[in-house]
């Protein structure tokens, strides 16, 4: 994940309490989704950014996962995101996100 984004995530989690922050990601692939999710839960696996060795354990979802999708306004999701469900490999993304959450999310 971009180093500046890591810095912001870390700041907000410290400022607001990690239990109050949810990260939503929009990556196009399972592996990239998992990388972003791991960064905001277990810490930066690439050892490059401010989240290296920092296990925030934040709640994290891909924007196309059912759990969060169910809470969106249907028309807005339809307009903003739905087309991408035909482009991305959602099954792979969901599987990888669930795996990261089950291991590293604390909240």
């Amino acid at each position: 994940m971009d180093l500046e984004n890591q810095r912001r995530v870390k700041e907000f989690a410290e400022q607001l309490g990690p239990e109050n922050v949810v990260v939503l990601i929009g990556a196009s692939e399972g592996s990239a989704s998992a990388l972003a999710a791991e960064t905001v839960t277990a810490g930066d696996p690439t050892y490059a950014g401010p989240l290296t060795g920092v296990s925030l354990g934040l709640q994290v979802y891909h924007v196309c996962e059912d759990a969060v999708k169910a809470e969106f306004d249907e028309a807005i999701y339809e307009d903003q995101v739905s087309m991408m469900e035909m482009v991305i490999d959602l099954d792979d993304i969901v599987e990888q996100m669930e795996s990261i959450r089950s291991q590293f999310t604390k909240y």
């Binding site: 912001r8 995530v9 949810v22 990260v23 939503l24 990601i25 929009g26 196009s28 995101v81």
Partner: peptide
């Protein structure tokens, strides 16, 4: 809740 959105240029943008 407070949400942080990390989008992707070739996926779903922020």
């Amino acid at each position: 809740k407070t949400v942080i959105a990390i989008g992707d240029r070739d996926g779903i943008p922020g």
